[in-house]
Amino acid sequence: MEAQEQQQLSEKVYESLKYIIDPEIGINIVDLGLVYKVALQEEQKLYVELTLTTPGCPMSSTIIKATEQLLALHYPEYQAHVELVWLPQWTPEMISEEGMRLLGND
């Protein structure tokens, strides 16, 4: 796949992941800055790297499952691999402008 196509796919995946809402905060995981990386590793293998707001968060398995299920539903032609990482540690500075707006920071 061409680099440009990969880039387009990555952007599309980011948009899709906005359907996953952090249940406590009520904002999607992309605007919260929890999705670190989306990449096409090998042909047909979609790699997503994400984190949580705090390492002990009980959401870990739920959010991985949500991401896997959403990708399987939305991109059946790809094999999704979702990895939870803790480095770099998430900080509120990673929240997007849109996320900040949704949190009431105008």
Binding site: Y19, P23, G26, T62, K65, A66, Q69, L71
Partner: peptide, 22 residues
């Protein structure tokens, strides 16, 4: 609500519209 939400909706997230804990 968060605890109940996790147990009830863990298998449905990403596929269906689910309520939020609140």
């Amino acid at each position: 609500p968060f605890i109940i939400w996790m147990h009830r909706y863990q298998d449905h997230v990403g596929r269906f519209k689910t309520p939020l804990p609140k």
